[in-house]
Design a protein around this nucleic acid. Structure first.
Lengths: 230, 230
DNA sequence: ACAAAAGTGTTTACTATACACCCATGG
DNA sequence: CCATGGGTGTATAGTAAACACTTTTGT
């Protein structure tokens, strides 16, 4: 940033954050939405989010908005992309820094401060969304599939302790594809990012109880990628 | 973005774009910098950039700033990350949307509108930079290495027509690593993203003239990544 | 004819994939 | 004892990596 002085107040855009929070629940990949109580787009579903305050960082703003609006906290949060088209908000110029977040499937969400309606919607069948949030969500979902394949963020979709079958199921739901049980287990275990606990979980119904594992936090979050190109 | 009305003018941050333009020249990976003529950080080198205007998109702002300040145009441009720490600019709250750009090694850069000093600096030996631009550049450089390995953006570092040796050399310079000539050529050609011309280029010195190739624009820019994880 | 860079295949090691049965528990 | 989900190994195919010599041109 080089020239000209800092712009006059009336030439400055407003800056917001919007967060796409994903979670696997009820055998489905879902995203957290809030129904707008105020115009514009009153009554439509939207991503949780809001304006950035003068003294807070963008990450802090995202966490604060998420907690205030949906009572969701302790999420895995990652900046996604900044949407800045000049006409994306009818109230005026609003630049939105979009975030991408993952929470475990057992995380509850509820209307917080505002008392507004909050719900987990299946990403494969969404209502019409406010603003350009459909575009943001498409981008976020693509990023999720992508990151699942070359990093270990997938663990953020599960509680602290989980069985390998639960992990495999989460992967299958997000990727929309069946995986081979033996290959899946071998690769996950060989990667060395899981620690075996000495406890088992008895399943809901019948069957042999499954060993519980946890994710090693100190493990590298990004698998060393072999070169794909050239 | 859900609650509260759009913020009052005096609570809005300024929004800028900053661009890290890379290019391979003189057997070195270089980045385009501008020496600041005005405070803050007068005299220090900085990434080209500036404030976003009321009616332009972020991408448009980046292209405009690049052209105005350095007379560089027709670049490959991609949004990188948004830096929004509350104290990153001593003049007040400035949120910067950083961009990452690539140009061919023969692209000249010169002071444009402002008449300010502009130069290509080797990324492996940089002066102290203004603001948090060192951090932005570190991030951009990492992204460049990364994208070079799983997409075909590398061609943006070369002129329209190039020899396979020039291409290989660009890759080696960015990745900082020698590549095997036969494997390199085989993989690039098998990927089908190059079109052979029927012309050759006689080298500077001696040696057999090399066949010229061009990049097929309609080719997929992203190589289908095999799954890395799990 | 020689220096300098371009161009070209094959062998070997590794990694990914496909695939079927026994085990532990609860009812 | 049977139904349910948990857990395990091997053979084959495909991909990546290592490696050295011949060809074309300018001087």
């Amino acid at each position: 940033m080089m020239y000209g002085d800092i712009p006059a107040l009336d030439e400055r855009p407003a800056v917001s954050v919007d967060i796409a929070v994903f979670s696997v629940r009820a055998q489905d990949l879902r995203v957290l939405l809030v129904r707008r109580a105020a115009p514009p787009f009153r009554g439509r579903w939207a991503l949780p989010g809001g304006f950035v305050r003068a003294a807070e960082s963008l990450d802090d703003a995202a966490r604060r908005q998420l907690q205030d609006e949906t009572d969701v906290r302790d999420v895995y949060l990652e900046q996604l992309y900044t949407f800045g088209g000049p006409r994306r908000d009818p109230r005026g110029r609003v630049i939105s820094v979009a975030y991408f977040a993952l929470v475990a499937g057992n995380t509850p969400a509820q209307a917080a401060a505002s008392g507004d309606e909050v719900a987990w919607h299946p990403v494969r069948s969404l209502p019409e969304l406010a603003f350009d949030h459909a575009e943001i969500l498409t981008y976020a979902w693509q990023r999720l599939r992508y990151k699942l394949e070359y990093t270990s963020v997938g663990f953020e979709l599960l509680p602290n302790e989980f069985t390998l079958s639960e992990l495999q199921s989460a992967y299958e739901i997000v990727l929309g594809e069946q995986l081979d049980k033996r290959n899946f287990r071998r690769r996950i275990l060989e990667s060395g990012i899981l620690a075996e606990t000495n406890r088992n979980r008895a399943g809901e119904g019948q069957g042999r109880p499954a060993r519980l594992y946890r994710y090693k936090k100190d493990a590298p979050t990004e698998v060393k990628a072999r070169r794909l190109f050239p």
